[in-house]
Simulated scan of single mutants.
Amino acid sequence: MATLTILHLSDLHISEQLFADQKVILDALFKDIEAEKNKGVAYDLVVFSGDLIAKGSYTDANRNLAENEFFAPLLKAASIKNDRLFMVPGNHDLETNKIPSTLNRLLKYRPATADGGMERSRFS
């Protein structure tokens, strides 16, 4: 039976202001990924599912950090080409002022909260 090995990461919230601390964690992550690879794990693809940059602050500095200090070393550590990287934007990756009004109406309610209630969306 064929297997598919996916490396799934999310919620980096990269920030120029916090990057010195984040780099310590990222360096450890890259070493762990390389260690798994050296044990024979062959990653087929990488999925990053949202909240790449803190508070959606897509400044040039934060974009450069994401590209050069996260994605490039991540793909190298996992031995994955960039065409095997899949990204899904998270709520912090959206510019809510650019959501069309039709979609805005569809986002009236968020998923149920832990207590079963419905939380009013900030989009309405």
Score class of each variant (00 low, 15 high):
His92Gln: 14
Asp51Asn: 05
Glu95Ile: 14
Arg120Tyr: 11
Gly56Ile: 12
Phe48Gly: 02
Leu107Met: 03
Lys76Pro: 03
Pro111Asn: 06
Asp115Arg: 06
Lys23Val: 08
Arg110Ile: 04
Glu119Arg: 15
Ser121Phe: 04
Gly50Asn: 06
Tyr43Met: 08
Pro89Phe: 09
Asp32Pro: 01
Leu4Trp: 06
Phe48Pro: 00
Ser49Met: 06
Ala35Lys: 14
Gly117Val: 07
His8Pro: 12
Thr5Lys: 11
Thr59Pro: 02
Asn91Ser: 10
Leu75Gly: 08
Ser10Pro: 08
Pro89Ser: 15
Leu29Ser: 01
Leu52Asn: 03
Ser79Lys: 13
Pro89Lys: 05
Ala66Met: 14
Ser10Tyr: 05
Arg110Thr: 15
Ser10Met: 04
Arg110His: 12
Ala28Ser: 15
Ile99Thr: 08
Ser101Gln: 13
Leu52Ser: 04
Glu16Ser: 13
Gly90His: 05
Leu85Thr: 00
Ala72Leu: 15
Asp11Tyr: 00
Gln22Val: 12
Ala114Gly: 07
Ser49Val: 15
Ala54Pro: 02
Leu103Gly: 15
Asp21Ser: 12
Leu52Cys: 05
Pro73Ser: 01
Arg63Val: 15
Met87Phe: 05
Lys37Tyr: 13
Phe70Glu: 03
Asp27Asn: 09
Ile6Leu: 09
Leu9Tyr: 07
Pro100Tyr: 08
Ile99Trp: 06
Lys76His: 08
Asn68Phe: 11
Ile6Val: 15
Leu29Thr: 01
Gly40Trp: 02
Arg105Asp: 14
Pro73Glu: 05
Asp60Met: 09
